[in-house]
C-alpha cells in the first residue's frame, strides 16, 4: 500500500482534469466532451467551441501553472533548506507585480508606458519584471555565501516592491487600479492556444533545468558545505536552480497573474503522500501534485454559482494558509 501511494497522484490528476472539463456555465454531458475531444461532432455545434477553446485551455492552464509553481516551490525549499520558502519569497512575483502595476497605473504617475495593455504585453512586461528581480538576485547571490541571507534579501525586495505598488495605487485612477487588481486575483481561463504554447515552452525550459539539477538538489538537502564536499559546484548549481525557479514563476505569473500558496504548499502535501526526499521522484510528483491542486482550486472557484467564478487567488489562499500553519507546527526547525 505504502509503496503504491504515488499512484494516487495520476489518478487524482485524471479525475480532476475530467471534472474540470465538465464544469462550466453551460452543461455539456461528459460523453459529449469525450466525443468532442476525440474529434467527433457534438449534438450542439457550439459545445465543440466551448470545450476546445474554453474548457480545455483552462484545464491545461491549470496543469501548467500548478506544475510550474509547485516545481519552483520545491526547488526553493530545498535550496534554502527552509520549509517556508516559495517562488514568491525570492521577490519574483513582486517583480512581476511591479511591472504590471507600472503599465496599468503608470499613467497617473506620469509614466505613460503603453496605451492599450493587451494580454501579450502584460505577459511580456511581467516576465520582464521577474527577470529584473532575477538579475538583482543573481548579483546578490554571487556575493552572499549563505542561502538564508539571500532569502532575507528576497523578502526585502518583495516588501520594497509592494510599497511601491501601494504608492502607485494611491495616485492612480480607479479604473486603472481595477484592471491591476483583477490581474492580481489571478486568472486561469483567459489563455488562448498560442499563449498556452508559449507557456508550455517556457515551463519546459524551466523543468529541464530542474531535472538536470536533481542530483544537486538532493545534495543541497545536506547543506552547502556537504554539497560542496560532494563535488557540487555550488555557485553554478545555485544559479541554475534560481534561474529555473525564475523561468517557472515568471512564465506562470506573466500569463496567470501572481498565484500564491501553490508553490509553498504543494511540496509539503506531496511529501506527506510520498515519503521521500529524492528529487528524482519529488520533481515529477510535485508537478503532478501542483497540477492536481490547481485543478481542484479551479473546480472550487466554479462551484458556488455556475455563472460566477471566484478569483483563483482567493481559493489558493484558503487552501494554502492552513497548510502553512500546519507546516509551522510540524517543522519547528523549518527544515523541509
Amino acid at each position: 500500500m505504502n509503496r503504491n501511494r504515488w499512484l494516487l497522484l495520476p489518478l487524482l490528476l485524471t479525475l480532476l482534469f475530467g471534472f474540470s472539463l465538465s464544469l462550466g456555465s453551460v452543461r455539456i454531458p461528459f460523453g459529449q466532451i469525450l466525443t468532442i475531444l476525440a474529434g467527433g461532432d457534438a449534438t450542439e455545434p457550439v459545445w465543440a467551441d466551448i470545450v476546445w477553446n474554453f474548457r480545455l485551455t483552462k484545464a491545461l492552464t491549470c496543469l501548467l501553472a500548478g506544475g510550474g509553481l509547485a516545481l519552483a516551490g520545491l526547488q526553493m525549499q530545498t535550496l534554502f533548506r527552509n520549509a517556508l520558502a516559495g517562488p514568491d519569497v525570492l521577490g519574483l512575483s513582486a517583480g512581476a507585480s511591479l511591472a504590471v502595476a507600472l503599465i496599468f497605473m503608470g499613467q497617473a504617475a506620469g509614466i505613460r508606458l503603453l496605451y492599450e495593455p493587451s494580454p501579450w504585453t502584460t505577459a511580456l512586461v511581467a516576465s520582464g519584471g521577474c527577470f529584473a528581480v532575477v538579475v538583482i538576485m543573481l548579483a546578490i547571490a554571487q556575493r552572499l555565501r549563505d542561502n538564508v541571507s539571500l532569502l532575507l534579501v528576497g523578502m526585502m525586495i518583495s516588501a520594497a516592491v509592494s510599497s511601491f505598488v501601494g504608492i502607485l495605487q494611491f495616485v492612480s485612477k480607479a479604473e486603472e487600479m481595477q484592471i491591476y487588481i483583477v490581474w492580481t486575483f489571478g486568472s486561469l481561463g483567459s489563455l488562448n492556444w498560442p499563449e498556452i504554447a508559449v507557456l508550455t515552452a517556457t515551463l519546459a525550459a524551466g523543468t529541464f533545468l530542474a531535472i538536470r539539477s536533481a542530483k544537486a538538489l538532493n545534495a543541497w538537502l545536506l547543506g552547502q558545505h556537504y554539497a560542496q564536499s560532494l563535488g557540487v559546484p555550488i555557485k553554478r548549481s545555485r544559479m541554475i536552480i534560481i534561474l529555473s525557479t525564475c523561468i517557472l514563476t515568471g512564465g506562470v505569473t506573466a500569463f496567470c497573474g501572481p498565484i500564491g500558496f501553490v508553490g509553498l504548499a504543494v511540496p509539503h502535501l506531496v511529501k506527506l503522500l510520498i515519503r521521500t526526499s529524492d528529487h528524482k521522484i519529488l520533481i515529477p510528483a510535485s508537478m503532478a501534485g501542483g497540477a492536481a491542486l490547481m485543478l481542484f482550486c479551479d473546480v472550487l472557484a466554479q462551484l458556488p454559482g455556475s455563472t460566477q467564478v471566484l478569483p483563483i487567488n482567493a481559493v489558493t489562499a484558503l487552501i494554502g494558509a492552513p497548510v502553512v500553519i500546519w507546516v509551522i507546527l510540524r517543522h519547528p526547525r523549518m527544515l523541509p
Binding site: 533548506r81 538537502l221 547543506g223 556537504y226 560532494l230 563535488g231 526526499s277 527544515l335
Partner: peptide, 21 residues
C-alpha cells in the same frame, strides 16, 4: 560536519548513497 541535514524522509541507505554522488 556538525550541520543539521534536511530531508527527514530519507532512508539510511539513501543517505549512504550520497557518498557516491
Amino acid at each position: 560536519l556538525t550541520e543539521k541535514i534536511a530531508g527527514v524522509n530519507m532512508t539510511v541507505y539513501e543517505l549512504v548513497t550520497f557518498g557516491r554522488y
